[in-house]
Amino acid sequence: MSDADTAHESYLLAPRGWALLTRYALLTVVALLFVVPLAWMAASSLKPEYQIFASPPVWWPSPPRWENYVEALTQLPFARFAANTLIIAVGSIVGHLLSCTIVAYGFARLRAPGKGYLFVVLLSTLMLPYPVTMVPLFIIFSRIGWINTFAPLIIPTFFGNAFYIFLLRQAFKQIPLELEDAARLDGATTLDVLRYVILPLSLPALAAVAIFSFQSSWNDFLGPLIFLQDQSRYTLMLGLSFFRGTTQINWAYLMAASLVTVIPVVVVYFVAQRLFIEGIAFTGLKQ
């Protein structure tokens, strides 16, 4: 988290002595609650069949059965699913970054009649439940032959997203107007201003949008479930759900497959977690 929050932190009231020790103990116990399920998932993924249901629980499968991963991931075309998911994720990131940046700039900087009203409309679409539009969207997309293609999952991202527009607008508003005015005096167009002034100064916010967009398209389930029908078009989440639906669940395989599908989001989270948490915190602050 940023250094800014030290400003409102009281050193006078910071826990000391026993209070500090209890605090750490409590922090650790709670952390275990969040981590143990993941450890259990990893342990289970390496178990041979006979250890899966063993009681008391086995934490260190011995010997670890790495073949589970190979076998799980070849039962269904997971490589295909991963490629599909990646195409959709990259498409969404590009779409969101392009569209949301331009729209956010307008909302952050330009004055026009009706703007306040449109901003309220933008914010209220944040509260619009997706299931309300999913049925008509399916009808429209099936008319224009988009069903079973990635188009319904990628094309709409090129038309903005209320949450990301809002996030970027907040970031753009913090850039001093003088910088932009100076550029304009030098003859810069709006696109120049965006490219040379606004964007370089908003990299953390842009990165946050890219990460959110990646995470939400990677984890999306309802969209792919409705719009993709052929197994060859499945995303990882659809594949995983299909795998879970097979009559004889092999839990070790299922855990292995799940673990592999979440690794990309977990890695991105750890690499960029400061941006991640700040991005969320940011939108929460400036409601």
């Binding site: 709670v30 993941l38 998932m41 990677w218 984890n219 999306d220 989440m237 799940s258 979440v262 948490i277």
Partner: peptide, 19 residues
């Protein structure tokens, strides 16, 4: 600690349910 508490939230979706 904060990072660990938030960790499961990034795996929302099918994997979260399957675990």
């Amino acid at each position: 600690f904060r990072t660990l508490y938030y960790l499961p939230s990034v795996l929302s979706g099918v994997a979260f349910v399957v675990v």
